[in-house]
Design a protein around this nucleic acid. Structure first.
Lengths: 263, 263
DNA sequence: CTATACTGTATACACCATATACAATTGTTG
DNA sequence: CAACAATTGTATATGGTGTATACAGTATAG
């Protein structure tokens, strides 16, 4: 564990060790051999493996040996695998938050926010495989909360409403990231040797679903809307815009009501 | 494996074994000893453990021995743990879908839908811990897609838009379920012996966050909005309504635009 | 120089999902 | 009825996981 934690306040100790590292609270010590490894190298290696082979390929053993070290060496830098996962997310959130084009309206700026979140998940398919443990508590992650709040700053919303809005948007991003991940996986599974079609279960569902039991879903499945036979990613892109536009419309409607004095 | 799968079509074989069970495609065989165990008992036991001790406590060994059998006996009924998880979700989705009060408007009916989804997750804290593998393919789960589609039936939306809307709403439910789960866990962690306060990281964050780096988040944290010091669940309930109301407002705005001929 | 604190390693443990082989049990078929 | 075949529950074994612990080597502080 590189160095005595240079922590003054007790409450800082309560943070997960990974978060302490991310905040730079763990200062390196002078004594002893200087480590050949480092938290950064470990996290980088882990992300590389996850990018290439998925999160399930990330084991302490795998990460360590990819760096030419033994499994247990990692524990000199990181307290647990959970901490490693936390740091992987934090690293993936190290984004260049764009300077605000002050001319742009809040709608486009929020769209840019969601777009960037989704891009993170597209780049790192493993991102949504890491279960959320709670509210963001690491620096880069918190920047991704601060940013949309900045967009909302001058809108007539209460603190809680602003927070809820950010939550709604980031939740939507994550949700959409999960969708994209699933589609990607279904597609690469479809590219597997003996798989004949892009759609996996569409045919089976068409056999099983009856119009009596599923009166309203049945027609959509019949028309291939549900299973996306075409493997048409553009449609998915439309889905993305559709949902986000609804959310933004909803916010806009509230603002309109507010400024017209109603409610 | 209870019985020769009585499956006619090949495409049905491609379904995960858990889904085949859920659809009743696996018929019991006559030969051999009749099993003392059953898929239902196994799933019920697994759910019981997950309800009481969380999903991580659900291991094949744990489930089996809670029923008085050996680990491997489960594999006579279920092909893999993934199948068990699938069946757990499917069982949790076995809900009484309310008869439609035809008088109610689509807004309230969609609200009821989201409310029921959320209730499932409140009842089963483990629900959101099971990673989504793709689109729903089991009977009860599909009923939870059919239902909201029924609400949307007569609204002027395309197939894809309806599907997107349902996706948006169920995504929101799930997202909110995750939030609730996190809050519950933070709260029960706060109830732990040496933990002094209900909020876990609020104090630490107040120390770490500077107004320079987080100009717009900082004030909210300062006012306790971010970490919900009060442990006030009512506020969260408001968050819930707030986000959902925005989504519904957004749909309503689209419908209004549609029926006014615009766009 | 000595004590101390750190590094990387080797070993060990408990747990996990699951493949396989086997004895016991039952229904079907000759 | 007897022989067969299918199915059940079990015991055992394999290769994986995260991580606790003890240890030898090394660099710095006093």
């Amino acid at each position: 564990m590189s160095g005595n934690d240079g922590i003054s306040d007790d409450s800082l100790e309560s943070l997960p060790h990974g978060a302490q590292i991310a905040w730079g609270l763990v200062k390196p010590s002078t004594r002893g051999p200087k480590g050949e490894l480092s938290v950064d190298k470990i996290v980088e290696a882990a992300i590389g493996i996850a990018d290439r082979e998925g999160l399930s390929a990330v084991s302490m053993n795998r990460v360590a040996s990819s760096l030419g070290f033994t499994t247990m060496s990692l524990y000199r830098y990181i307290k647990s695998k959970d901490d490693l996962l936390l740091l992987m997310m934090e690293a993936a959130c190290d984004l260049p938050i764009p300077e605000e084009p002050e001319g742009a309206g809040w709608r486009d700026r929020l769209k840019a926010y969601v777009g960037l979140c989704i891009e993170v998940m597209r780049k790192h398919g493993w991102f949504t495989d890491i279960p959320i443990q709670g509210v963001p508590i690491t620096p880069n992650n918190l920047k991704l909360v601060d940013w949309p709040l900045r967009v909302l700053r001058d809108l007539p919303l209460t603190d809680y409403e602003k927070m809820s809005t950010v939550l709604l948007l980031s939740g939507y991003s994550r949700f959409y990231g999960v969708l994209m991940r699933d589609m990607d996986r279904a597609m690469s599974a479809g590219a597997d040797p003996d798989s004949f079609s892009g759609e996996k279960y569409g045919a089976a569902l068409r056999l099983l679903m009856t119009p009596e039991r599923y009166p309203d879903l049945y027609p959509l499945v019949e028309r291939g809307v549900y299973t996306e036979d075409d493997g048409n990613k553009d449609e998915a892109q439309d889905d993305f815009s559709f949902g986000l536009d609804r959310i933004l419309d909803g916010i806009e409607a509230l603002l309109a009501r507010r400024s017209s004095g109603e409610k």
